[in-house]
Amino acid sequence: MTSSTANSSPRPREPGTVLVTGASRGLGRMLAKLYAGEGWRVLACARQEQPAAADCMLPYRLDVNDAASIETLGTMLEGTAIDIVINNAAVRGDTGGLASLRTDDFMEVMRINVLAPLLIAQALKPNLVAGRRKLLVNISSRAGSLAEGTLDDDDGDYAYRCSKAALNMATVKLAQDFRRDGVAVISLHPGWVRTDMGGPDAVVDIEQSARGLKNLIDTTTMADTGSFRAYDGKTISW
Results as ranks from 00 to 15, higher is better:
Pro10Glu: 13
Leu98Pro: 01
Val203Phe: 05
Pro126Lys: 03
Leu151Lys: 11
Arg132Glu: 13
Ala230Cys: 13
Trp238Phe: 15
Ile236Leu: 14
Ser163Leu: 09
Met197Cys: 04
Asp154Thr: 15
Arg132His: 10
Met76Phe: 13
Thr195His: 03
Ser163Thr: 10
Leu188Gly: 02
Ser237Leu: 15
Val172Cys: 11
Met76Ser: 15
Arg194Asp: 10
Met222Leu: 15
Ser140Pro: 02
Asp157Phe: 05
Tyr35Cys: 06
Asp55Trp: 11
Gly96Cys: 03
Leu58Glu: 15
Val20His: 02
Ala81Met: 00
His189Ile: 01
Pro117Trp: 05
Ser8Gln: 14
Glu49Tyr: 09
Arg102Lys: 10
Thr5Phe: 15
Gly16Arg: 02
Gly22Asp: 04
Thr21Ile: 10
Lys214Ala: 13
Asp232Gln: 09
Lys33Pro: 01
Thr220Ser: 13
Asp55Leu: 15
Ile86Glu: 06
Thr221Trp: 09
Asp94Trp: 01
Asp152Lys: 00
Thr219Gly: 08
Thr195Ala: 09
Asn87His: 08
Ala121Ser: 12
Thr235Phe: 12
Arg47Lys: 14
Met30Gln: 13
Pro12Cys: 10
Glu71Thr: 14
Arg92Tyr: 07
Ala210Phe: 03
Gly96His: 00
Leu62Gly: 05
Leu62Cys: 10
Leu19Cys: 09
Gly22Tyr: 04
Gly93Phe: 01
Gln208Met: 03
Ser100Ile: 09
Leu128Tyr: 04
Leu118Ser: 13
Lys173Gly: 13
Leu135Asn: 04
Asn65Cys: 14
Ala147Cys: 04
Asp152Phe: 02
Ile86Asp: 05
Lys164Cys: 08
Ala99Arg: 00
Arg41Val: 00
Asp83Phe: 01
Thr225Glu: 02
Asp83Met: 04
Val172Asn: 08
Tyr60Thr: 07
Val109His: 04
Tyr160Ile: 05
Arg13Asn: 15
Val18Trp: 02
Met1Val: 12
Val185Asp: 00
Asp157Leu: 11
Ile82Lys: 01
Val20Gly: 04
Val137Phe: 05
Ile236Lys: 09
Thr72Ile: 10
Ala53Cys: 15
Arg41Met: 00
Ser227Thr: 12
Met197Gln: 05
Gly233Phe: 07
Asp232Lys: 07
Gly131Trp: 00
Arg47Ala: 09
Val193Ala: 06
Asn88Thr: 04
Leu213Ala: 06
Ala46Tyr: 02
Arg133Met: 11
Asp232Leu: 09
Asp177Gly: 00
Arg179Thr: 06
Ala159Leu: 06
Phe178Ala: 03
Asp157Asn: 15
Leu31Thr: 01
Thr220Ala: 14
Cys45Met: 06
Ser69Tyr: 03
Arg41Gln: 00
Gly149Leu: 01
Ser141Gly: 09
Thr17Leu: 12
Arg41Gly: 00
Gly131Val: 06
Met30Leu: 12
Ala53Ile: 15
Gln176Val: 12
Trp40Lys: 00
Glu49Cys: 14
Asp224Ala: 13
Ala166Asp: 07
Ile186Met: 04
Leu31Lys: 05
Ala89Gly: 07
Pro10Gly: 09
Gly198Trp: 01
Ala223Trp: 05
Met30Ser: 10
Asn113Met: 10
Val109Cys: 03
Ala147Thr: 06
Asp104Val: 07
Ser140Ala: 12
Gly144Gln: 02
Thr21Asn: 10
Ala44Asn: 03
Ala230Arg: 06
Ala68His: 12
Ala67Leu: 11
Val185Gln: 03
Leu135His: 06
